[in-house]
């Protein structure tokens, strides 16, 4: 087991190297100049040249790459734009990013799992069609449009919730009020896939022999469905959620832009637009790693839980 985890961890090294080289190649092979942004739209040629020199952008690319990697791992890599350590910047975003993802996930689960279970139990009923229809609906609208509609309804017209921004940690009233709308907008996609997965997974489980046995033994319907059915249907659902949660970090870019939410996705795209090379480098590397590590965790946990699954 331990050797398996170790091997997986060692396998992360080429991933990190590949990611870093790839990102760096994109940054360097494509046109654009960070110095042009830093020096401002009215800068003279001299200032642009001096700015390039100030940030070492005039050195050969391989020197820049080695310096960037070296600085990243010694924690000395500074964002060109903010002049702050990229590690600090990324960590600073972590609470807002995680809170948004967490709220989206909770909203999605609260709605999706009951809806999926009922849809499966009452297969082909109105409820089944309605919940599947709504789930598909939710995944078919661009999230930026849902976002604006929510803002107009709940912030401008009803004035129940603040229109945008981060209100502080989630356990404060203000923090919670701020996170509800972006959390809901972000939850729609997760909600749709979870509802559908819950339904199909439940359908599969409900046709198994042990469910029939339980029914035959005279167990109550609720107990059969929740106790025996849902319990066994949960594994694929949880896998899917784990996967999607890792993706939420980067996938929330549009939601974060609409709601002016200071998350990691917005940090990354602003860095891309400003060609803040060290920061792009660090955020993409970070987001990629989160994804890989979460997937690794899921795999490892499965081996722990289920001895039948083995990784050699």
């Amino acid at each position: 087991m331990i050797s398996y985890i170790l091997r997986r961890l060692v396998a992360l090294i080429p991933v990190v190297l590949f990611l870093s080289l790839f990102v760096f190649a994109i940054l360097k092979l494509t046109p654009g100049d960070p110095a042009a942004i830093l020096a401002g739209p009215q800068a003279s040629a001299d200032v642009i040249e001096l700015t390039r020199a100030k940030f070492g952008l005039d050195q050969p690319w391989y020197v820049q790459y080695v310096l960037m990697m070296q600085n990243l791992f010694t924690g000395q890599l500074d964002s060109i734009y903010y002049g702050e350590s990229v590690t600090a910047l990324v960590l600073q975003r972590l609470p807002a990013t995680l809170e948004l993802g967490f709220v989206a996930m909770v909203i999605a689960l609260i709605v999706a799992i009951p809806a999926g279970v009922i849809a499966a139990v009452r297969r082909n009923s109105i409820f089944d069609y309605a919940s599947m229809g709504i789930a598909l609906f939710g995944v078919s609208i661009p999230v930026f449009f849902t976002g604006i509609l929510l803002i107009y309804v709940f912030a401008v017209t009803l004035q129940w919730l603040p229109a945008s921004g981060y209100g502080g940690p989630i356990w404060t009233v203000e923090g919670l009020r701020h996170v509800i709308m972006p959390g809901f907008a972000l939850s729609l996609v997760l909600m749709a896939s979870t509802t559908r997965l819950t339904r199909s997974s439940m359908l599969e489980v409900l046709s198994e022999d042990y469910i029939r046995t339980a029914r035959a033994k005279g167990a109550g319907e609720a107990r059969v469905v929740v106790g025996h059915g849902l319990r066994n249907a949960l594994i694929p659902i949880v896998t899917n959620i784990g996967n999607q949660f890792a993706r939420l970090f980067a996938g929330a870019v549009l939601t974060e832009t609409v709601f002016a939410w200071p998350g990691a996705g917005r940090l990354a795209i602003n860095a891309i637009f400003r060609r803040d090379e060290p920061l792009v480098f660090a955020t993409v590397l970070f987001l990629g790693l989160v994804y890989v590590v979460v997937n690794l965790l899921i795999d490892v946990l499965y081996t722990v839980i289920n001895p039948r699954i083995s990784y050699e």
Binding site: F102, L234, T239, L297, I298, L301, I305
Partner: peptide
């Protein structure tokens, strides 16, 4: 255990906050 994964991630959020 699967839920524990989620909780650990979530508690990171609180710790971070």
């Amino acid at each position: 255990l699967a839920i524990a994964v989620m909780l650990v991630t979530a508690s990171l959020a609180f710790a971070g906050g």
